[in-house]
């Protein structure tokens, strides 16, 4: 199965195509599509220029690629894995130089 994702034109946020032909920022709302339907819906989404930028297909479930492509999509779903700048305080900051 496949789903369609893109970035939202106004703010670039990650969005997914829903069964209602809308777009949602929630991955859970993505419509699972078989290969044939996926191509058809993707073509339709590509003609709608007002909301989504660069729609493309991603694999779902057991067919999802295990590596880089899916990791990239995982980061798009969950956000950066790196946090922003939070830190641990080094133990030796105040020790004698």
């Amino acid at each position: 199965m496949k789903a369609i994702t893109a970035n939202r034109l106004t703010d670039g946020r990650v969005i997914y195509r829903t069964a209602q032909g809308q777009w949602s920022t929630r991955f859970q709302d993505a419509q699972p599509l078989d290969d044939y339907a996926a191509e058809t819906v993707l073509a339709q989404a590509g003609r709608e220029s007002g909301i989504a930028v660069g729609p493309y297909l991603i694999e779902l479930g057991e067919h999802a690629p295990a590596g880089q492509k899916w990791r990239r999509e995982g980061i798009r779903i969950d956000g950066p894995t790196s946090g922003t700048i939070r830190l641990i305080e080094p133990a030796n900051h105040d020790r004698a130089a």
Partner: peptide, 16 residues
């Protein structure tokens, strides 16, 4: 796209 790039605006994974 080429117009926004000339003004420093990229489209990355999560946002512009």
């Amino acid at each position: 796209k080429p117009l926004r790039l000339m003004n420093g605006v990229y489209l990355q994974l999560h946002a512009y």
